[in-house]
Design a binder for these strands. Sequence first.
DNA 1: TTGAAAGCGGTACCAC
DNA 2: GTGGTACCGCTTTCAA
Lengths: 337, 337
Amino acid sequence: MGASIQDVAERAGVSIATVSRTFTLPDKVLPETRKKVLEAARELDYTISRSASALKSGKSSRIAFLTGGELDSWYDSHVLAGLNSILHDEGYDIPLYAVSDVQERHAFFSDMSIKRNADAVMVVSFQISHTEADKLATTGIPLLGINTEPIPEFSATVGIDETSSMELVVNHLFNQGHRSIAYVCLDPDTESFKWNGRARLQAFLSSCSKLGDQVEPTVIHAPKDETRADYALSQLSRMNRPPTAVICMNDEYALPLIFCMQRSGWMVPRDMSVVGFDDSTYAREIGLTTIHQDPYEMGRSAATTLLGLLAGQEPSESVRIQPSFLAVRSTTAPPEH
Amino acid sequence: MGASIQDVAERAGVSIATVSRTFTLPDKVLPETRKKVLEAARELDYTISRSASALKSGKSSRIAFLTGGELDSWYDSHVLAGLNSILHDEGYDIPLYAVSDVQERHAFFSDMSIKRNADAVMVVSFQISHTEADKLATTGIPLLGINTEPIPEFSATVGIDETSSMELVVNHLFNQGHRSIAYVCLDPDTESFKWNGRARLQAFLSSCSKLGDQVEPTVIHAPKDETRADYALSQLSRMNRPPTAVICMNDEYALPLIFCMQRSGWMVPRDMSVVGFDDSTYAREIGLTTIHQDPYEMGRSAATTLLGLLAGQEPSESVRIQPSFLAVRSTTAPPEH
DNA sequence: TTGAAAGCGGTACCAC
DNA sequence: GTGGTACCGCTTTCAA
């Protein structure tokens, strides 16, 4: 159906080698010849075949995107958009490996269909084990982490500083006078493959302990489903000395919790301060105090780093900390005594 | 680096043809032989090369995903997740063609890099022109629409019934006693390539006119950016006889509008009823009355249809209407006189 | 059932 | 600067 390089060569009266060069190394072709070829190509509506050039050149032109769970989170889909905004134009596809249960996870790392079929792997928000990372490393292709633990197997990692971000939050609340703070999150051990679940929890505990005995931390493991806000609220209510502030693992926990509180007659921040993480959809409009970060830019940053790596450059820094800051808005206030 | 089909053949003591068959047509290989091959493959950590098989078989194993604007909308990213949940396992990649300005749009349809490099095109939420559709049709590959106008060039279209969904909304408000209703949307002619912008606006106007002179419709074109809610509210405020209800083109307009109203001291639904479209993130938690639809399922539905098409089946129905319904919650109520 | 062999459509090396 | 050509790794007749 479509014209091949042969057809173009004949029409332009040159060899296929020249046609190939015209597209891949235009400088090595006489402007005049190039013009002829380009014209012939246009007339025949010729497009280069990805599979053919991939086969011959030995590069798959695919960057695997590995993530835990369906690609439905605000964070991951923005990372993807950012990656694609750069990699697409460079000729890369981004196959999506969304492993959402242990079987899929095991399958991914055992058949390793990625081998020879990807030029790099982006590990996104995924709590990868060392065995798994080792397995990936045997491919010899660059491994990049976005929103993951910076492990030695990765050529580079892009993310925010979880520890200092959480410290910003805890200190903000502490400075407002809060002395009992709850952290609401998924149970990182059972409910999810996401890395930041674990990292943020640890950061919360360490931030509190830095303040010594002055702050009493509580951890509430909420379920993943729609009942998470109700569950968290009921847990808070039944404590005999409830905290005065709640930090949520992300906005997707914080916002429903706020709505739920309002329906139950609690005033935010009067009765309870609430902080989120991410500064995602509606956070600004609602006035949520939250940690701001930009996953789209992280995707772009990772893509740029990767392109350098693929071009043979050494990564200038193996861990790239992206900016994040505490957006103080109207869901936090000093506690009423 | 990686083992090739040659290596496996040698190790298993068979020809490469047999190795190939073992993976693509296992039934045509003696169980005994198959076992040998599979074992050799495992020992060598062999994975089939996608580019090689793509080249030889003439199929690209790519399904192009064409959408207007960055892939950051709730709707589009859920469609993608749904598509990928089926197509990935079938061995398809889904390259993302996100055209967000006129240049990119023009480039996409003029270089047609998709030609010979995609087995099908998914047109998602995109207001495609007839010229463009014709151009795509010259590739001869299946064209599917998701959340698009059902045009003859498409083999199939998946979406909700925009007209009847909007009628559900308008009639709900009418039955509550609303007689002056505003519709808030992007200006479909200038601000976006998204199809439903146009379709919903038309549906709004026709739904109102079906009720004759009894309902007075107003259309407010709001900007795309963060000021959209403020802008819409200011437009509403300056009307000398403001409507009693507002329908928004989607939840991403409705929710900020509600927050904005609350900040300005308006009570929803007492002072103004608000309806959204999509039933997306937080809509349920906030109690937004909205049209519910499931883009993830639409993606899966379209993927299934496509696989049938690719397997040579005729599509059973060229337009597939996915279920949608009005979720009546707490942002609509009879108007106070 | 299995093997031999002819490509699929490019790329890149080597002459000229 | 351009052309000839040997592959890249697989799929798929066609014979055996």
